[in-house]
């Protein structure tokens, strides 16, 4: 008869180690595109705002066109945030599914099946 404590330790250590690694990989996969979107947005704002302000002053843009361009940047910022939020939930779902697989494999391994 196997010792319950030993089997439980083997099982919980396998799950803990695997879950930590899984979480780290998934977090990295989520963080990278979010950082890229934020950098792209900052770069775009830095480039576009002076260009649009100058065009407004020179009469290449009307006031309402200028305002719409500003709103388009606000819209883009919001779309970036919603994408990051959605991707985070996708990664959490991926983590949940991965954890189920880890638990099953760890349980099978712990009881030596």
């Amino acid at each position: 008869m196997p010792n319950l404590d030993d089997v439980w330790d083997t099982f919980s250590n396998s799950v803990k180690d695997g879950a930590g690694e899984l979480a780290q990989n998934l977090f990295q996969e989520w963080k990278d595109p979010a950082k890229e979107d934020a950098s792209e947005f900052i770069e775009m704002t830095r480039e576009k705002l002076p260009k649009w302000t100058k065009a407004l002053a020179q009469g290449h843009l009307t006031k309402s066109e200028f305002n719409l361009l500003i709103r388009s940047l606000e819209g883009l910022a919001e779309l970036n945030a919603l994408k990051a939020k959605g991707l985070a939930k996708q990664k959490l779902e991926q983590f949940r599914v991965g954890l189920i697989s880890l638990v099953v494999n760890a349980a099978v391994g712990a009881v030596g099946l």
Binding site: K48, E65, S72, L73, G75, L76, N80, L82
Partner: peptide, 19 residues
Amino acid sequence: SKFFVEEFSSVLALQFDRI
């Protein structure tokens, strides 16, 4: 204006890319 159309297109393309 032509200037507006060109500038707005570049932002709108990125908006759709996020979706």
